[in-house]
Design a binder for these strands. Structure first.
Lengths: 158, 158
DNA sequence: AGTGTCAAAGGTCAGAGAAGGTCAAATAAT
DNA sequence: ATTATTTGACCTTCTCTGACCTTTGACACT
């Protein structure tokens, strides 16, 4: 026999599944109204059913126009990001794919915009012009630097 | 779910981005009119969204022909660190000093632990062993990568 | 030139209202 | 008995408005 918390959890997860973006936005009061409960019930549900460990990130803003955002950090849990990085390592590494990966990781909130900025700088070919590296050497070096940086980065919690 | 303040902030930041100079000039009354709000709302937006700590400087003149100027500037904190970075650039760059700088920036909360982790990886000499770089070439490359990454990083707000 | 007045800016501040957050106590489930 | 849920009183943050204040420049008057 499901309880209120279960119903609200299901509802939010359905919304997330339907959403075309990586997150949903809710109004605490409204949602509480829909389920005829006190607003703080929503906090309880978020705390219990949408913790970071389970792959959710909750952010909120108070005041007029405030709201709660729930992000799905889908691939963080099963470690598929690490697999992706490893595949970059083993298979052909190229700049385009690396940059693409950085972009997606930002979108999925795996890394921050600032972290992405460093990685993007690292991938700037022109910075390496002053060296005598040939293009294959450069590719291997970039791969080494990029993959390593990313692996270390993901070891540390936000 | 954006509110009035968000809209006005966006509008002003777009103007700033489009502007060819370091600042934009607005008329408080006019702007308030455009967004159908009271003039003091503009002050509120400036106070909340364009404070010095975030790299904005707001000046104004009262009276006939008065107006408000919003400058995009570098924050003091970033500025003094940037000087340090530049000095690393011009003077002798070496790994020890670079690592030390990273450490101090973390302590001063200019950069995060994760950001530091990427920079530290970048400074790992052993990653460059697979290349044919001699030690002076390596030093120059590291300097280039490091200084560039840091400079880009400081351009982005947390 | 000096002064007074007025209108046209912009500035300040307090208060109302609109969210969301916390925490402890009561209740229900296991 | 212990853990999970639910509620409600109280708190903090953010936004918006309106009444009232200050500064500046133009112009008229001496």
């Amino acid at each position: 026999m499901p309880n209120l918390t279960d119903y609200i959890e299901d509802y939010l997860k359905k919304l997330l599944a339907l959403s075309s973006s990586q997150y949903i936005e809710i109004k605490r009061r409204e949602l509480a109204g829909k389920f005829s409960c006190v607003p703080s019930q929503i906090n309880y549900v978020l705390e219990r059913r949408f913790p970071l460990e389970r792959g959710y990130l909750v952010q909120s803003r108070r005041g007029g126009g405030g709201c709660i955002r729930i992000y799905r950090i889908e691939t963080l849990r099963n470690g598929s990001w690490r697999d992706l990085i490893d595949s970059l390592d083993r298979l052909s590494f190229d700049l385009g794919r690396a940059r693409q990966l950085v972009k997606r990781m930002v979108e999925d909130k795996i890394i921050s915009r600032r972290e992405a900025a460093i990685l993007d700088q690292l991938l700037r070919e022109d910075l390496y012009l002053l060296t005598s590296l040939n293009s294959e050497e450069l590719r291997l070096l970039l791969r080494e630097l990029f993959v390593n940086a990313l692996q270390e980065l993901l070891k540390i919690e936000y």
